[in-house]
């Protein structure tokens, strides 16, 4: 017999999985609409009202396209690549707190799949293995353009992981915990972390752009230089998985940015609204998703505004600007914490 706790967890996992996929699907629609608005076009408008069912049509198209594996490709790895990209994209969702506690029949349930006490390290771990999907896919295609795309992706991700980790260390030093649930909870009492860590936030969001391979950091798939980069040889739903994984990454990283720096599901004056228990939790979840959607919009806004970097500019920014800035941020955070604890008196 399964305990109510386990049944609740299974339902929550399925819910998070479904929400992630649905948000990622309609992000593709939102991306095209945002691009259309920014470029003064109409965007998709054929499938359903305002083209709202465009993602469904795109999905059906992907599924019904011919499944093609190049003769010179390494078959097993060619299939493994997109699978790994999807897997690592979906893995991060388990540590994100999606809202406050829900109460059913006297039992309190957290709206977070698991609040492990090494949450931040788990995040970094998943991010660091996230590049394998692209690397394996690009290499196994046996195509020069794919290989260059894979090499670019790996060196880019390794470079930006360092600055990202250093920015996170400052945050961890300040909050004194590695659990995401605890970090979000602390922002309920005081200000959001963005107030204390503006530089850390800036470094983190730039690195998040680079890690998700979004423009202006989409060097691994520059269509003007590399045809399609690492997914040149892919077709049908395997290509769909690669493209879809990018949107899932975007959604999850928006959720992480909102949780770490913008108070997560907390919002100002939430305890003076007169809401209690489940009602408050639902409002909190709604507010959290508003924040997440804003950051997804921000991703798109940047993509259609800023031109792509040149490869050497990308490396210079990562190694010579962001890492020293992150170390400076770490240093300042350390000094401020020292002052607060009376270390210099």
């Amino acid at each position: 017999m399964l305990s109510p706790e386990i049944i609740y967890k299974i339902i929550l996992i399925l819910a998070v999985f479904t929400v992630t996929l649905v948000v990622a699907m309609w992000s593709t629609y939102a991306e095209r609409k945002v691009a259309a608005v920014l470029q003064d076009r109409l965007g998709p408008n054929r499938a359903g009202p305002w083209g709202f069912f465009q993602p469904v049509a795109d999905g059906l198209k992907m599924f019904t396209k011919e499944e093609f594996i190049p003769g010179t490709a390494d078959k097993q790895l060619f299939i493994l690549g997109p699978c790994l990209a999807m897997l690592t994209a979906l893995m991060t969702g388990v540590v994100i707190p999606w809202g406050g506690d829900l109460t059913f029949g006297g039992h309190s349930y957290k709206l977070q799949i698991t609040d492990i006490n090494i949450g931040i390290l788990y995040l970094l771990g998943v991010v660091s293995v996230g590049v394998y999907g692209i690397m394996i896919g690009g290499w196994s295609s046996n195509n020069k353009y794919s290989l260059i795309g894979a090499l670019r992706a790996s060196s880019q991700m390794i470079s930006y992981e360092i600055a990202m980790g250093l920015a996170l260390i400052s945050l961890v030093m300040m909050t004194g915990t590695l659990s995401l649930g605890e970090i979000v909870h602390q922002q309920d009492a005081g200000w959001a972390n963005i107030v204390y860590q503006p530089l850390g936030f800036l470094i983190f969001i730039i690195c998040a752009f680079a890690e998700t391979n979004r423009a202006p950091f989409d060097l691994p798939e520059t269509e003007s230089e590399l045809i399609g980069g690492y997914h040149t040889e892919y077709s049908s739903m395997k290509l769909g998985f690669f493209l879809f994984a990018e949107y899932i990454n975007m959604f999850i990283s928006s959720a992480i940015i909102a949780s770490l720096y913008f108070g997560g599901y907390n919002f100002p004056f939430q305890h003076s609204l007169g809401l209690e228990g489940n009602a408050l939790s639902l409002v909190q979840t709604f507010v959290f998703f508003c924040k997440v959607f804003f950051f997804i919009f921000f991703y798109m806004w940047v993509r259609w505004t800023i031109p792509r970097f040149r490869y050497d500019q990308l490396m210079n920014l990562g190694w010579k600007t962001l890492i020293p800035l992150a170390i400076l941020n770490l240093f300042i955070t350390g000094i401020v914490i020292g002052f607060r604890n009376g270390f210099f008196q």
């Binding site: 991010v127 660091s128 394998y132 690397m135 060196s155 390794i158 992981e161």
Partner: peptide, 9 residues
């Protein structure tokens, strides 16, 4: 995450 990525690279 880091060392093996460099190896494969």
């Amino acid at each position: 995450g880091a060392i093996m990525v460099l190896f494969i690279y």
